[in-house]
Design a protein around this nucleic acid. Structure first.
Lengths: 212, 212
DNA sequence: GGAGGAACCTACGCCGGAGTAAGATGGGGG
DNA sequence: CCCCCATCTTACTCCGGCGTAGGTTCCTCC
């Protein structure tokens, strides 16, 4: 670990756009490894093989740098989720694809998911809002599917999707932290099955269950 | 909001134990409202109607103060969960009770749940471990019930309980943040039903589902 | 080949907030 | 009645880390 990423040749100059990309990559590594607060601008600069003022020529401040990354990866997650749900018309497969999307997201891109799911800056309104918005958008995508194919009320469908998204997020994160205990495919399938059993045929058996 | 809690009579002396309790209460308010990093020892002291050194006569540092609270409320959650699962022998009722326990926890005690679920100090190993341990203990309690009444393998049962706990935590937090859209009892029931449909009769229908 | 500007550096200002020294105060036991 | 210790206070020190002033190098384009 602690691969220096791009500390190559402390003396190479880069065109502006290229440098910016690289700075973002370095920042991601540091923010992911240390969290927002423990991350130092000096370390990010070092990691990029550059001095601090360079960082400030590309981003007005630490916060903006962080927000840029948060924004980017939030968008990736929502997009993955959208693709998953559009990938098929079979709802059962949809559930599986949706969970796989979460696991993929968590497994991918240098653990960037920690920015979205485990940010230590949620107390800042801007960050909290972004986080919740991302969460809501995912839930809404799923909620739309549920509503479309059942007679569940809007409010109930929404709450159910919230629960499902929470399950996906939590189990994906858990799976990643305990790599090796269960292979990815199996974990996805298992949790997806739990979800599918939960929602499939909700209307049908509802009356019966209401009896209790 | 910003109820001063106990800023009563800036000049009253208190016996050691009583003062300690009060400091913990003040600290909880501030940590919950601001998070660990944005919380200032000065503010905690002020909130308790006392000066900073007093705080340091009761706790060696900011971190220890925080950990004391985290520990306490983590224990409360696990205990609530244990009680819920022991409250009945009917597994369906168990699921409901278990979810209710999460909602109760989130609804209770000055939003102390934010320390356990939304800590902005998870990057510190001590905190991360405590958080995960709490989470695991809850999952393990549920996992034990699942294993006890089904033939699901240990590993699978564990992953399923992880997912369920995640669902409970997420939906409870969401419900609290959007108070008013759904009454507590209804929300609990709805999500509990989702979970119950998911796990009940898992063995029975398993073979059939494996076909796909 | 030499201005000019873009990319980069060293070195510092400064501020918030954790933790501390040294002294004031007040009430219970001798 | 007065001493003593526990309680509490004011008023600092110190440090990490963000952001910046001012100067330097190297490439490009005329």
């Amino acid at each position: 670990m602690t691969a220096p990423s791009d500390a190559r040749a402390r003396g190479t100059r880069l065109p502006r756009v290229r440098r910016r990309r690289q700075l973002l990559a370095a920042a991601q590594e540091v923010f992911v490894a240390r969290g927002y607060h423990a991350a130092a601008m000096d370390e990010i600069a070092d990691r990029a093989g550059v001095s601090k003022p360079v960082l400030y020529q590309h981003f007005p401040g630490k916060l903006e740098l962080y927000l840029a990354l948060l924004e980017e990866h939030s968008e990736v997650l929502v997009e993955k989720q959208r693709e998953a749900l559009e990938s098929t018309d079979d709802n059962r497969q949809r559930v599986i694809a949706s969970f796989r999307a979460y696991f993929d997201f968590v497994a991918g891109d240098g653990e960037a998911f920690r920015l979205v799911f485990e940010s230590d800056l949620r107390n800042l309104p801007a960050v909290r809002e972004k986080s919740e918005e991302t969460f809501q958008r995912c839930a809404e995508l799923i909620g739309a599917v549920i509503r479309q194919d059942t007679s569940i009320s809007d409010e109930e469908a929404h709450l159910l999707s919230i629960g499902l998204v929470g399950m996906a997020e939590t189990s994906a994160r858990y799976w990643l932290n305990n790599h090796g205990s269960v292979p990815k495919g199996a974990a996805e399938q298992l949790v997806a099955r739990l979800a599918w059993r939960g929602i499939s045929g909700w209307d049908l058996h509802r009356a019966a269950e209401e009896q209790d």
